[in-house]
Amino acid sequence: MYLAKVYVTYKESILDPKGEAVHDALHRLGYTNVDSVELGKYFEIKLTAGKKTVEAEVDEMCDRLLANVNMESYRYEITEMEA
């Protein structure tokens, strides 16, 4: 069994109004040293090896569903889990 940790974030050119709202809220709480906040998505996917390599399959999942590559980019870490 493998564990894939997938992180999806907006590309730099894309507005992140939710991140900005969190940024502003942190400032209101007094954390004026906060320079920026990026709000993204995090997935933990447990899977077994299929027909393709686990990496190829996770990559495909990101392209097809987990991220909208028009406006988001993704990265992932895959580790083998102890049985």
Partner: peptide, 17 residues
Amino acid sequence: LTEAGLLPGALQANRSA
């Protein structure tokens, strides 16, 4: 339609959130 690739581009969150 944009998610399905039948139209180009994407709809993102309103600027005002």
